[in-house]
């Protein structure tokens, strides 16, 4: 009975937190729409987030591409289908692995930093001080961070995909003797404009999740240093859970859309 009760409480907690985060996101969007002079701070955040994360993305991107190409080749070689290695690898990276890895890296590097920064500002009354001086703290602190992280996730995805495919090509060539032309020849069979569209949509949504959850947890932190620590931990846990939940839902929806589009094309 206790296990069931705990499970119900955990599920309710998950959805309560999801609701609170969604309301916070709505508040930030309303503030963005009702205020001016947002462009420059957002741009500064884009530069800051991208600069801080690019080295990690480059490093992770190369290895993700390399690992995937080895794993996929292992399976394809059983069926003498190595010809499809480039297409399958690139498609997997663009559709699933790229947006997921970028969002997890962002959650670890920028999400934790944002939650800690805002949490510290909250418990040391800096946010109250901003409010008292006649500035909306959502406008001053959260709007630039939220949209900055979302836009950065697109830029980092683009960089990550390039290095990942580059890494995969290099490993395919050196470890499996598949040259660049062979590798690239199967890509158009598996990758289309809609694949890129899906990847961009996922990166934007996952980036939004990282930004909203970390800003929300930091902004509502309380209870001194311990409260900031809890905010960072919760931001990390909830971000990862929501991204996995969103990935599952989005993948199904996008697959469904693709099936419907294909069947419509077939009918016409």
């Amino acid at each position: 009975m206790n296990a069931i009760r705990t499970l119900i409480q955990a599920t309710m907690g998950f959805f309560q937190e999801l609701g609170a985060t969604a309301l916070f996101f709505g508040r930030v969007v309303r503030t963005f729409r009702n205020t001016q002079d947002n462009f420059q701070p957002i741009l500064a955040q884009v530069a800051f987030v991208s600069y801080r994360s690019v080295s990690t993305v480059l490093f992770a991107g190369v290895f993700v591409g390399a690992i995937l190409v080895l794993q996929i080749d292992l399976i394809l070689s059983k069926y003498d289908a190595e010809i499809f290695l480039g297409g399958l690898n690139t498609s997997t990276v663009i559709r699933e692995v790229g947006p997921l890895i970028i969002s997890f890296l962002l959650a670890g590097k920028i999400g934790a930093f944002t939650a800690a920064e805002l949490g510290t500002m909250r418990v040391t009354e800096q946010i109250d001080a901003i409010e008292c001086l006649g500035t909306n703290p959502i406008h001053y602190l959260v709007v630039p961070r939220l949209f900055g992280i979302m836009i950065s996730s697109l830029i980092l995805l683009f960089i990550g995909l390039i290095v990942s495919v580059g890494g995969a090509m290099s490993v395919a060539w050196f470890a499996r003797g598949i040259n660049t032309v062979e590798f690239a020849s199967s890509i158009p069979k598996f990758v289309s404009i809609s694949t890129f569209g899906a990847a961009l949509l996922k990166a934007l949504i996952y980036g939004g999740i990282v930004a909203t959850v970390s800003c929300h947890r930091g902004f509502t932190a309380s209870g001194g240093a311990r409260g900031v620590g809890q905010a960072v931990t919760q931001a990390a846990i909830y971000t990862n859970l929501y991204i996995l939940f969103a990935n599952f839902t989005l993948s199904h929806i996008l697959d469904l859309i693709e099936v419907l589009a294909n069947s419509a094309r077939g009918v016409s």
Binding site: E131, C132, N136
Partner: peptide, 23 residues
């Protein structure tokens, strides 16, 4: 509401327990 409160806050300067300076 929040907008009207901003006007009140302009009249009332608050010095917090912590210095609360923006780092």
């Amino acid at each position: 509401n929040e907008n009207q409160l901003a006007g009140v806050r302009q009249k009332c300067g608050m010095v917090f327990q912590h210095p609360a300076l923006l780092d």
